[in-house]
Design a protein around this nucleic acid. Sequence first.
DNA 1: CAATAGTGATTGCAAAATGCAAGCACTAGA
DNA 2: TCTAGTGCTTGCATTTTGCAATCACTATTG
Lengths: 167, 167
Amino acid sequence: MEPRSGCPVNAAVEVLGDRWSLLVLRDVIFGDRRHFRALLTGSIEGIASNILADRLKRLIDAGILTRGTAARGQRARFSLTEAGIQTLPIIYALGNWGLDWCQGSAELRSRQQLMRDEGPAFIEELMDELRVRHLGAPPKPHDGPGPLERLDAAYAAAAEEEHVDRR
Amino acid sequence: MEPRSGCPVNAAVEVLGDRWSLLVLRDVIFGDRRHFRALLTGSIEGIASNILADRLKRLIDAGILTRGTAARGQRARFSLTEAGIQTLPIIYALGNWGLDWCQGSAELRSRQQLMRDEGPAFIEELMDELRVRHLGAPPKPHDGPGPLERLDAAYAAAAEEEHVDRR
DNA sequence: CAATAGTGATTGCAAAATGCAAGCACTAGA
DNA sequence: TCTAGTGCTTGCATTTTGCAATCACTATTG
């Protein structure tokens, strides 16, 4: 596949400029979904299996994900590469824009809101945590819960609030 | 068109998650291309006229671009809305990733490199300049050339260097 | 006036991508 | 053996993309 130009934006969108790839990466990063079935059944947008299989293959070919060895019929685990981890600012920027300019559910917006409130250091910490989880990097010392845990807590709190609101 | 979920990332990719929309925005922002023909013939990726027409319409419908009034046969001018200007961090993040992980031409990479070197304040200044050019905001006082002029200068310098290298 | 150049699409067609839902060949456990 | 889980693959219809020609309009020039 020959790139249409040598512009870095074009290069990035040839790999990432389709909505399913971006949503898959979001689920790997924030949902900690590392297996095919989890990604398929966990997709709130309802990705089709052939699209998921295709996108995972593309992301692997592009050096963004790796696939652990598994025999046929056995679960394989997907991991982000360093290049994959560094897509986080893109996903973050998209979510940030969506927060300002699109409607959405408070529950699903809560993670994005927390990241915005926390600032760029949080994004860096999150990338570090992804390096631990996906690349086997040694954990850095930190107090209290890690970024992903905090994001999950924000989501759960928003879900609880939404539940209370409905009563 | 019903959104597939209320997640802000999903909301953003439903509007922006296709490569042509992102490339059109890049050309409006960095190439200062404001008319159909300029976007069509100036596209280094060679966008097709039906795709360009379709994407411009979508971006207008999504509130990212506006189209100046023009009679049939007359040139219309496209302008970024505030929402359109705020896609800059997304485009920037994509280009930044492309700079690190993809091959490309020095000439076409020079703008991205300059933005990275300058840091987040540059992105803010660039958004201010876009507000002046597209929204008629009053210019802020600044010394020397504006961000877009500096980006063009970096591009020209890289082109000159590349030209020298070839001799 | 006719010819030319420019305006932003639109069109016809073939190829490619998407999406739904069923099915496949495999593994593992009861 | 049956059931449940594994990651795809398949058949089919629909949608999107991409190429290149064309359209209906405007404005200018000879």
